[in-house]
Write a protein that binds this DNA or RNA. Structure first.
Length: 483
RNA sequence: GGCGCCGUCGCCAAGUGGCUAAGGCCGAGGUCUGCAAAACCUCUAUCGGCGGUUCGAAUCCGCCCGGCGCCUCCA
């Protein structure tokens, strides 16, 4: 079975056939760097990171481009508010982006262009659009002329007449039609500006992505991704601009991820109901956030709440506990032992089930269901083999294969002990745990157990339970964790 | 107002015409254990409502109820 994906352009799932066999060109709209990223940004980034990883797993040579919008009204406003240069704003938040996304184990795209490095390409496109009669200059601004692009609206399923009726021209604009949008904006005094045939100014937002996509991936490429909120007008405008220049639709498959909601409302700055990635990572391991987001289909909405993260954390704990136990018994599980050749891992029946799920429009939720089942089977097998002292060969391969699948979805990248340590550290922080007190109680309990004073031992454990600490007695001694 | 999406077990969430409606969390019982924990086993839904199409629908159509998104910057 081959990869099928939902194309916003056609409104249905389609078989994926790249323009050039074996290769995929993919452009994903990145962030505007004027503030810290929130969980909504994390979702979009993780979703397309997963798409990227999966396409590579399938053997495609992927050219993945994800941009930074580093010139924009919001950036200028932020710079004015903080009384610093706009480049200081973008530098700061690009660094923050890398810190946050690094924590989330986002693979680095092949190219991460900044809009301001591609002004020339934008100017060329704008000039070409004017030459083709698709755009016009008006007092230093340049606008795209909607009525000269009859296909406008095909991505978002709108028609021009309906939109015209509800559209308004803002004061100070010089549009011929209300729906026309800016390709180039005349700059106000003191604002960042670049020279152009129409005087000093800066690019409109939409032309940035068109120019960067075209520069790195050509006039036509395979996949363009972004959040659902970009369908209109951003991506609609990209099509108009790019096709207006080249005469050909720029993108074969348009993919859009759903929102992150808080109490079923879209997370956004204006509603002031957002959590930044760094806020969340103070309390939860990055892989918890990733697992939570991938336990839902990427196109649907996700409601965000601590309770759901707690559920995801329990699931992730199970995986790490299994691999901790498996490594203790079997040594390091080398994924390489079954992945010397990509064909090797892909021939595994379990991976074929994962592929079947992922091939259906990246159904990570179903893939995770298979992984949970496999985890259960392997836990059972591990117990059984240990008791019977059986042949572990099949187990080793299966465990390494499961690990490969986990990593395909971007988690299980840490040593189990490091994972546990980090989770514990953040819990200690948030719950204000006194480790010395806990260890004293454990020692007292251990002493009581050695004299078989079970009442005293249980008393110690009850005290720990009250602190939120759970004990686990095993062959090596007693380990504790936070409930 | 225009366009579109969603409503599946206590909670989260797959499934969109036909095997017993995945999986996770929580809960109950059990195996193991000094007792626990972990792990494993077993159990827990007929799919918002009504009507229709069909041999057959959670899945298609219609109406209704409830929730949300885009239409302005937004992942």
């Amino acid at each position: 079975m081959s990869l099928r994906l939902y194309n916003t352009l056609t409104g249905q799932k389609e078989e994926f056939t790249p323009l050039e066999a074996g290769k995929v060109g993919m452009y994903v709209c990145g962030v505007t760097v004027y503030d810290y990223c929130h969980v909504g940004h994390a979702r979009a980034t993780i979703v397309f990171d997963t798409v990227y990883r999966y396409l590579q797993h399938l053997g495609y040579q992927v050219n993945y481009v994800r941009n930074f919008t580093d010139i924009d009204d919001k950036i200028i406003n932020r710079a004015n508010e903080e009384k610093i240069g706009w480049q200081d704003v973008t530098k700061k938040y690009i660094e923050a982006f890398y810190e946050d996304m690094g924590q989330l184990n986002i693979a680095i795209p092949n190219v991460e262009p900044k809009a301001t490095d591609h002004i020339d390409g934008m100017l060329k496109m704008v000039s070409a659009l004017i030459e083709h009669g698709k755009a016009y200059e008006a007092e230093g601004d340049v606008y795209f002329s909607i009525k000269n692009f009859p296909e406008y609206g095909k991505l978002s399923g709108r028609n021009i007449e309906d939109m015209m009726a509800g559209a308004r021209v803002e004061p100070g604009e010089h549009k011929r039609d209300p729906m026309d949008f800016a390709l180039w904006k005349k700059s106000k005094p003191g604002e960042p500006s670049w020279d152009s045939p129409w005087g000093p100014g800066r690019p409109g937002w939409h032309i940035e992505c068109s120019a960067m996509g075209r520069h790195f991936l050509g006039e036509r490429f395979d996949i363009h991704g972004g959040g659902k909120d970009l369908v209109f007008p951003h991506h609609e405008n990209e099509i108009a601009q790019s096709q207006g220049c080249s005469g050909t639709p720029p993108v074969k498959y348009w993919l859009h991820n759903g929102f992150v909601n808080i109490n079923e409302e879209k997370m956004s700055k204006s509603l002031d109901n957002f959590f930044t990635i760094r806020d969340i990572l103070k309390r939860y391991h990055p892989e918890v956030l990733r697992l939570f987001l991938l336990s839902h289909h990427y196109r649907g909405p996700i409601d965000f709440a601590d309770q759901y993260l707690n559920d995801a954390e329990k699931t992730l704990d199970r995986f790490y506990e299994f691999f901790a136990a498996a490594q203790e018994k079997r040594g390091e599980l080398k994924v390489e032992s079954v992945t010397d050749a990509n064909e090797g891992i892909r021939s595994q029946p379990f991976i074929q089930k994962i592929e079947e799920a992922m091939n259906d429009d990246f159904n990570t939720a179903v893939a995770l269901a298979h992984m949970n089942e496999e985890l259960r089977h392997l836990n059972k097998a591990m117990t059984h083999l240990q008791r019977k002292n059986g042949d572990w060969a099949g187990f080793d391969t299966a465990a390494a294969t499961l690990k490969y699948a986990c990593q395909l979805l971007g988690f299980l990248y840490h040593e189990p002990k490091d994972y546990k340590a980090r989770v514990l550290a953040s819990k200690k922080e948030t719950l204000g745990l006194d480790v010395a007190q806990i260890e004293t109680l454990i020692a007292q309990r251990q002493a009581a157990r050695e004299t078989k004073d079970w009442a005293k031992a249980d008393e110690c454990r009850d005290a720990l339970t009250a602190l939120g600490v759970v004990l686990e007695d095993n062959a090596e001694g007693t380990v504790w964790k936070v409930k």
